[in-house]
Design a protein around this nucleic acid. Structure first.
Length: 262
DNA sequence: CTGGGGACGGGGCCC
DNA sequence: AGGGCCCCGTCCCCA
């Protein structure tokens, strides 16, 4: 890995080393370097077990209430977030950030809307009323309830979707059609690329109303706003201490406040 | 160990 | 139907 890193830095002196995560395993490196882009989907999900109270919604984030999050058959709970980079041929991909279709591009996998990408067994759309974002993770991991069975299957991974649009959006995460003209890093969506480009330009359009800090990413501003809050979003159900981030609560629990659930 | 920032992924909703 | 945006979330790094 270090050799790879050194070579990368030598060849791309103006580009930040993309594999910044020092904890990358050899398997991760294989995932990056092999043409097959999805072996990470086979890895087991890393989960934690402790109750969390979301103060903003009043929901208790107790993983025991979300069995699908731990469904071993679900491949998607793993964060393959740092999507594989196709740095080998950055110029071969020509996605304009304005939303050029990944479908049908010459060097990419076959079009997601082609007939072999899905199997329209059932086309009933799920409830679109729910603004329950909390349920997103449930939906991500698997079809949680057999009531609305997904009908569209990704041919690149085991994920299933109940609409063609959702499937197409997902397939972009495989094809990564949006490529940064500066460093060649590829993204699934144009707005992700735009956010990434801000890391090059230094643009920070999201300002904190409470201090003079500004952020390139709205989510990061949101997280920052938690630091100004008297009562933070995530509460330990054992000691009632609140935290600005889920990850902090996780660390808190893992450190022993909630030994029964850590 | 804790708190916070940076970067990014992905599903749902709106237009 | 599709693109853009919003929101929620994760992971890593660093002070």
């Amino acid at each position: 890995f270090n050799n790879f890193k050194s070579k990368f830095i030598d060849n791309f002196p103006c580009v930040e080393f993309p594999f910044r995560h020092s904890s990358l395993s050899s398997l991760d490196l294989v995932a990056y370097t092999l043409p097959d882009r999805y072996p990470l989907a086979e890895l087991p999900a890393v989960t934690s077990n402790f109750p969390v109270t979301c103060l903003t919604t009043g929901l208790v984030w107790d993983v025991s209430l979300l069995p699908s999050l731990h469904d071993p058959t679900s491949p998607s709970t793993l964060s393959s977030s740092q999507g594989p980079l196709d740095l080998s041929s950055p110029s071969s991909v020509s996605c304009s950030s304005s939303g050029e279709e990944d479908e049908g591009r010459t060097s990419d996998p076959p079009s997601p809307d082609s007939s072999d990408t899905y199997h329209p067994q059932q086309t009933s759309r799920p409830r679109r009323n729910s603004k329950n974002r909390a349920g997103q993770r449930e939906d991500k991991s698997e079809a949680t309830v057999p009531a609305t069975r997904p009908a569209f299957f990704c041919k690149h991974c085991p994920k299933e979707y109940n609409s063609l649009g959702a499937l197409k959006m997902h397939i972009r995460s495989h094809t990564l059609p949006c490529v940064c003209p500066t460093c060649g890093k590829a993204f699934s969506r144009p707005w992700l690329l735009r956010g990434h480009i801000r890391t090059h330009t230094g643009e920070r359009p999201f300002s904190c109303p409470h201090c003079n800090r500004a952020f390139a990413d709205r989510s990061n501003l949101r997280a920052h706003l938690q630091t100004h809050a008297d009562v933070k979003k995530y509460q330990c159900s054992t000691c009632s201490r609140t935290f600005s981030r889920m990850s902090l609560l996780q660390k808190h629990s893992a450190a022993g406040c909630c030994p029964s659930t850590a």
